[in-house]
Design a binder for these strands. Sequence first.
DNA 1: GACGATACGGACCACGGGTCCGCTTTGCAA
DNA 2: TTGCAAAGCGGACCCGTGGTCCGTATCGTC
Lengths: 202, 202
Amino acid sequence: MPERRSRKDAARNREAVLAAADALFARRGSPEDVTMADVAAAAGVGKGTIFRAFGDRAGLLRALYEVRLEPIREAVEAGPPPLGPATPPRDRVPALLDAVLCFKLDNRGLATALEESGSGSPYQADHYERWHSLLQSVLEQIPGLADSGFTAHALLAATRADLVEHLAGEERVPRERMRAQLADLTARVLASGPPQGPGHEG
Amino acid sequence: MPERRSRKDAARNREAVLAAADALFARRGSPEDVTMADVAAAAGVGKGTIFRAFGDRAGLLRALYEVRLEPIREAVEAGPPPLGPATPPRDRVPALLDAVLCFKLDNRGLATALEESGSGSPYQADHYERWHSLLQSVLEQIPGLADSGFTAHALLAATRADLVEHLAGEERVPRERMRAQLADLTARVLASGPPQGPGHEG
DNA sequence: GACGATACGGACCACGGGTCCGCTTTGCAA
DNA sequence: TTGCAAAGCGGACCCGTGGTCCGTATCGTC
């Protein structure tokens, strides 16, 4: 059978670390002031254990992220509309963005931590790559939209974790309002179709 | 005259540090691996001098940013169209965004460094605050646009330094193409008003 | 030239990520 | 049950970085 590696205490510790980290990132305001030693202490293990299990800080964040993202990913890959693949593109794009936004609202600490967690920009992380290529491919199915790659980047940029954090935390924008704003923006980006033009273009 | 404080060696060192930092951030790929000690060495001063002059790393970045941004800020505040205040809103919005984009393209290292340079999100930095409130106020003058605050955030998000860096560096998108893409996105966001609609909308 | 104020600069500190290695636990087998 | 090798543990330790401190050099003035 596959699960032959990993002793049971290792597995238990892994879970403990994930749980502890999850709690800490959720509880604490800034992800910056959750140190690896904190996580270790909260999980009741040594630092070595964390690094053995996850490689480095980014690895821990990634693992957490994957766990939390799992249900959404399934819904996107094989679920029913409006997230699933059977949805018509014009409806699926806003649904995808709304899902991303909600996810980041529900996991503010974690998402922020992952996005700013070093090793360069979030744009090299492969979870971003996945969202982007999916969104791009859906956008491509909408006729009259050029630059689906850039559009995908731009739409995703509107859901950046630190922006969401700022809106929710500083500007106290309520969840539903934020969702509506994003939906509105998406609609505007998708709406303009073929080469019309109000006439003031030279 | 105002400039009565600061001994001349202090002033000279300040300039040396700014120049050195500027060069380093431009030359080096990642802003992460420009350390304060590097800057000090390159400027031929001690670390203490830098911290005395700029407070902390973020302060140095901010100072550099201000210097570089000065001409643009003037053009925006009192220059001729399309950046200046006399420009009609529908033309000024894309011009502002284009200016931001070009600035970040021309100062990739610096902009990236400033945006990720800790102390929380870029959304607390007051230069962001300035761009946002300006953009928002211009957007508000365009009839039929709701949520100018969020729209301003979203449009600015499309010019985030790390995104620009990714597009220019990884995806090798040429400058003019990127400008065109941003202009197109902006146009789409601004275009959709209630009135028109090519007819394929339901 | 002398003297106080100002600024210099690099040794020094705090702290966080990441490593290492002697010790413990686990799981298997006799 | 006992023995034993491998897997895993954990915290002392290392190292690089931002930031501080204070004896010393410089400035500017009289």
